[in-house]
């Protein structure tokens, strides 16, 4: 078993390396057009958004509708760091993400006592509050936002941060803390009875999700060099939620696939003009009606399934493991 796991990890590492160097080479040789590059960056940012929201919604079972608010905090804090205070990129990204995580704790603590849809509406309200405040703060440009943020998000940084986000969240979920979160999703009262501090784990999942949403915001700000409060409306929160549910609640690989697929579909529909969003919405409804559990359900797409190795069904069904 151990040897197999090592081998699988090696295969994954090699695949990632090939992906990284392959795209880096393609960029250098101008084989990848600029338009495809823009969408590549969007994919990375969307993956971070979807995976981090999946931790909150899919794994811990807490419906949150304010993810765009977290993204905004990360974007604004990191932009202030580089643009106004002249700090290096890495520090800015770190401070932006940490600030978002801290806000996640502060904001998460009281409403996370709420259940289900009350939490949803509280987080929705919080997202609107963040946007409302940003519009009124002249230091960060008010409605016009911040412009001329240095373009520091390179392919290397994007790749490192995206992979790190996925790996860290995956390891969190597979740790005992992650199991506690899943237990809360399955049955909060039972989890409570088993001695799990449900509020603690909910806030933990919430702030980790916020941290990475902040990271996505920081990367966004330093690639698109312009941030405005109107970028982070509730529609952006919906976008992230759509990716999570579309990919499958509780499936990280599902979120990744959905983030990539939705970015591609979105770009492909650009030339349809006014019909673009009509078709996008129609696709969304049809896919949900015919595949309500999302593309992957709660399953993960792993090497083991691909190689049909022995060792259980190969599919991680967290639901079964918890029962």
């Amino acid at each position: 078993m151990k040897a197999m796991r090592l081998r699988n990890n090696l295969i994954i590492a090699v695949c990632l390396a090939v992906l990284y160097f392959g795209i880096a080479y393609a960029m250098k040789q101008r084989m990848l057009s600029s338009f495809h590059q823009v969408n590549l960056y969007l994919m990375g940012i969307n993956i971070i958004m979807a995976v981090s929201l999946n931790l909150i919604v899919g794994f811990t079972g807490q419906l949150a509708l304010g993810h765009a608010g977290f993204m905004a905090i990360g974007a604004y804090v990191s932009a202030v760091m580089t643009l106004k205070l002249g700090q290096p990129f890495l520090l800015a990204v770190l401070v932006g993400s940490l600030a978002t995580g801290v806000v996640g704790v502060l904001i998460g603590l009281p409403p996370l006592r709420l259940r289900g849809d009350y939490l949803a509406i509280a987080t929705l309200g919080f997202g609107e509050i963040i946007r409302g405040l940003l519009i009124n703060i002249n230091y960060v440009g008010g409605a016009a936002g911040m412009n001329g943020i240095p373009k520091l998000t390179t392919w290397t940084w994007l790749f490192i941060f995206t992979v790190a986000t996925v790996l860290l969240i995956k390891n969190f979920i597979n740790s005992s803390h992650g199991r506690a979160c899943i237990a809360i999703r399955e049955n909060e009262i039972a989890a409570d009875a088993m001695g799990i501090n449900t509020t603690f784990y909910k806030v933990l999942a919430f702030s980790i999700g916020a941290f990475f949403a902040g990271l996505a915001g920081a990367l966004y700000a330093h690639y698109f060099f312009l941030i405005q409060p109107q970028t982070f409306t509730i529609l952006k929160s919906f976008d992230a939620l759509v990716m999570v549910v579309f990919g499958g609640l509780g499936s990280l690989t599902g979120s990744i696939i959905a983030a990539v697929a939705i970015t591609v579909v979105n770009a492909a529909l650009q030339s349809l003009g006014a019909l673009r969003m009509v078709i996008y919405a129609l696709l969304l409804v049809v896919v949900m009606v015919f595949r309500p559990q999302g593309l992957m359900g709660t399953k993960e797409f792993t090497l083991r399934t691909l190689l049909r190795q022995k060792g259980g069904s190969g599919l991680h069904d967290y639901r079964k493991q918890v029962d």
Binding site: V57, L63, F238, L241, V242, V245, F246, L249, A274, R276, M277, V278, Y280, A281, L282, L284, V285, M288, V289, P292, Q293, G294
Partner: peptide
């Protein structure tokens, strides 16, 4: 069709219908 398949799927469908009617 989604009544028995989780509330989030229905929520996403509702968002989809909303976007569809707005843009339609």
């Amino acid at each position: 069709p989604l009544r028995n398949s989780g509330r989030l799927a229905a929520l996403i469908t509702a968002i989809g219908v909303s976007l569809f009617l707005q843009n339609g």
